[in-house]
Design a protein around this nucleic acid. Structure first.
Length: 316
DNA sequence: AAAAGAGTCAACCGCCGCCGT
DNA sequence: AACGGCGGCGGTTGACTCTTT
């Protein structure tokens, strides 16, 4: 129907425009015939809706390519990653999740992520929560994505001591497109996060998680840009290395002056990453709160994480 | 079984910037 | 330059559903 096309073609979203092209939708000035068709449509169908409301309904619900259903683990990871980078830029984030609307992502953030922040009794925008997200939630997501992938593909394996019992994860290529470090994020409408799971050494999560850029409140902060939330970020194209640089073995010979900060994140040898979670009130939390039980799709804060966080807190 | 509480999500609201006049 | 209309965006609301008690 012409109305549908007109709604889309007014959008300046590149992705939608490319879809217009694929659908052979017209652009440019309206013809008399098109005007008449629109007039007839409105006359016959006569919606008592504003154009704004119609547009919203189309974009969020009726659009044929809109994806419905649960947010996948990969999508969750991507949302966390992109939100840490851009903040509440929902429409921008949505451009990297094909078929997902900004509204859906926004709802996910508010209902799931903010819920966890609330349970941790900290602000969702606080550094403490962001760190917890980055160093616990996201790694666990990666772990679960990899665990799921390992059921269908099998090549080399590595032992994961992140939690107990250990989880065997698999390093391999899969059907997802490989992220090229030379690629620019912009315009990557079909980017999948899978490559983020892997580092250059083909190591997945081992017992020790290090980070290659300096933490925000580190006393010897490395040069890095800051986003609007004060979080240091690396160049976008280097996205994959920042959060999941995994070292197997002590310090792995790297020269990162901050490696001690993160290297002993495993359960068997926890040190004090001073300043990491100084204000979280884990001790006051109910030990049996629903969100640390079971194995729901967004339950990454399991009992092991809670124990780890409590130990971290105790060592402050 | 029913009520209360929690969670989810579509839709609305208001602001802002762009564009045409 | 000023103004008005419109689309895009993020924040918020409220209805509906699900879960718990």
């Amino acid at each position: 129907m012409e109305v549908k096309g007109s709604v889309i073609s007014n959008s300046n979203i590149t992705m939608l425009q490319s879809e217009d092209d694929e659908l052979d939708l017209r652009r440019g000035p309206w013809t008399v015939d098109e005007d008449l068709a629109l007039i007839n449509y409105i006359a016959n169908q006569g919606l008592k809706r504003t154009g704004k409301s119609c547009r919203l309904r189309w974009l969020n619900y009726l659009r044929p390519d809109v994806r419905r259903g649960n947010i996948t683990l990969e999508e969750q990871l991507l949302i966390l990653e992109l939100h840490s980078r851009w903040g509440n830029r929902w429409s921008k984030i949505a451009q990297y999740l094909p078929g997902r609307t900004d509204n859906e992502i926004k709802n996910y953030w508010r209902t799931r992520v903010q819920k966890h922040a609330k349970q941790l009794k900290c602000d969702v925008n606080s550094k403490q929560f962001k760190d917890a997200m980055r160093y616990l939630w996201m790694p666990r997501l990666v772990e679960r994505i990899q665990a799921a992938a390992s059921t269908s593909v099998a090549t080399a394996t590595t032992t994961n001591n992140y939690g107990s019992p250990s989880v065997t994860t698999t390093v391999t290529t899969n059907n997802h497109p490989t992220y090229n470090h030379n690629n620019n994020f912009e315009g990557h409408t079909n980017m999948m996060l899978t490559p983020t799971i892997m580092n250059n050494n083909n190591n997945l999560y081992g017992s020790q998680v290090t980070q290659s850029h300096t933490p925000d409140n580190s006393s010897n902060g490395a040069a890095a840009s800051s986003d609007s939330f004060g979080t240091q970020v690396s160049p976008v194209s280097d996205l994959t290395q920042d959060y999941y640089n995994v070292a197997v073995g002590s310090n792995n010979g790297n020269n990162n002056p901050n490696s001690d900060y993160y290297q002993q994140f495993g359960f068997d040898c926890i040190t004090s990453p001073s300043g990491l979670f100084p204000q979280m009130d884990f001790n006051s939390m109910e030990p049996n709160t629903p969100w640390i039980q079971g194995d729901t799709s967004d339950n990454f804060w399991n009992v092991e994480n809670m124990l780890l966080l409590q130990q971290l807190n105790d060592n402050m």
